[in-house]
Simulated assay, not measured.
Amino acid sequence: MQAVKKDSLEMLRKEILDLQGLGIRPDSEQVNVPLGEILENMPGGVFPTGAIHEFLSPTLTSAAAATGFIAAIIHSLMQSGKPCVWISTRRMIFPPAIRVFGIEPDRFIFIDTPREKEAFWAIEEALRCESLCAVIGEIATLDFKESRRLQLAVESSRVTGFINRRFPHRITSTACVARWQVQPVNSKATIGLPGLAFPRWKVELLKIRSGRPASWLLEWSGNAFHTVVNENPQQSMLPNLKTGVA
């Protein structure tokens, strides 16, 4: 009887994920994003693709950290061979620096617009294009209605969207599948080796639909994420902002 109940609950859980657009796709379509321990907090134990991920970046340093973390995730999504579109009103990324994350800058299409209204339009249209693996949008404002439009766009195209909200004016609930906050953490040089160390971030999953919020200290090396243990990450840079709910 217990086995029957367990199987029934598992089937119900999968049906709910399918209705939310987070169902596990066939192995031929599933993208493996090696996030390590973070995947234990994800719905179905996998990184949600074909969904919108929101990042809160109130400062230049946090925006840069989020950019690096997103680029590291894009490394896995680009294994499909499809390009990525990067849309911003004030581009701050230095394209050659993307090579740090194992991808060439010519795999990206950069679009710069004068105003956020045009940027949002470009993001929504790009998310409808099935020929892309992902779309990165750098805007400040995103309300529930706008986020719902973006989420509906990716549910049909299965493109993964990343909205890096630089200097957000107001934090409210959105329809995004996940809300993240990424902060830079001092790297630790390898013993006996000179030069810069590998990038490190304190990654906070503030909300995740059908998952569990938590925080981790991650390092990017060897084109993969590694969890750093027994070290204290720096404190959150958003102590007074409300994270909202899914």
Rank of each mutant, 00 (worst) to 15 (best):
V4L: 15
V4H: 13
K5N: 15
K6T: 14
D7M: 12
D7Y: 10
L9V: 05
E10S: 13
R13M: 10
K14R: 11
E15H: 13
I16W: 04
D18A: 05
Q20L: 14
Q20T: 15
L22R: 00
D27P: 07
S28E: 15
E29C: 04
E29I: 02
V33F: 03
L35C: 01
G36C: 03
E37N: 12
I38H: 10
N41A: 06
M42Y: 00
P43Y: 01
G44D: 02
G45L: 00
V46W: 06
V46Y: 08
F47D: 00
G50P: 04
A51G: 01
A51Y: 00
H53N: 02
E54S: 11
L56M: 13
L56P: 08
S57P: 07
S57C: 15
S57G: 11
T59K: 14
T61F: 04
S62H: 04
A64W: 06
A64L: 07
G68S: 09
I70V: 15
I70W: 04
A71W: 08
A72L: 04
I73K: 03
H75W: 11
S76N: 14
M78N: 06
S80V: 12
S80Y: 12
C84F: 07
S88N: 01
T89G: 02
T89M: 00
R91W: 08
M92R: 12
P95H: 00
P96G: 03
I98V: 06
I98S: 00
I98P: 00
R99G: 03
F101I: 13
E104T: 07
D106H: 12
D106F: 14
R107D: 07
F110P: 00
I111F: 07
D112M: 10
D112L: 09
P114V: 03
R115F: 05
K117V: 10
E118F: 05
F120L: 15
W121I: 11
I123F: 01
E124K: 07
L127Q: 05
C129V: 05
C133N: 05
C133V: 05
V135K: 08
V135P: 08
T141M: 09
L142Y: 11
D143E: 12
E146Q: 11
L150P: 01
R158Y: 08
R158H: 14
T160E: 03
T160L: 01
I163K: 00
N164G: 11
R166Q: 07
R170H: 06
R170V: 09
R170N: 13
T172G: 07
T172M: 06
T172H: 05
S173R: 10
S173E: 13
T174Q: 01
Q181A: 11
Q181S: 09
Q181D: 10
Q181V: 12
V182F: 01
P184H: 05
P184F: 05
S187L: 09
K188L: 01
A189S: 12
T190W: 02
L193V: 15
G195P: 11
G195M: 10
A197Y: 02
V203L: 02
E204M: 11
L206D: 08
G211P: 03
R212W: 15
R212A: 11
R212S: 13
A214C: 04
S215R: 08
S215L: 02
L218D: 03
S221D: 08
N223S: 05
F225A: 04
F225H: 02
H226V: 06
T227H: 14
T227R: 13
T227I: 15
T227L: 14
E231K: 09
P233Y: 02
P233N: 02
Q234D: 10
P239D: 04
P239E: 04
L241W: 14
G244I: 15
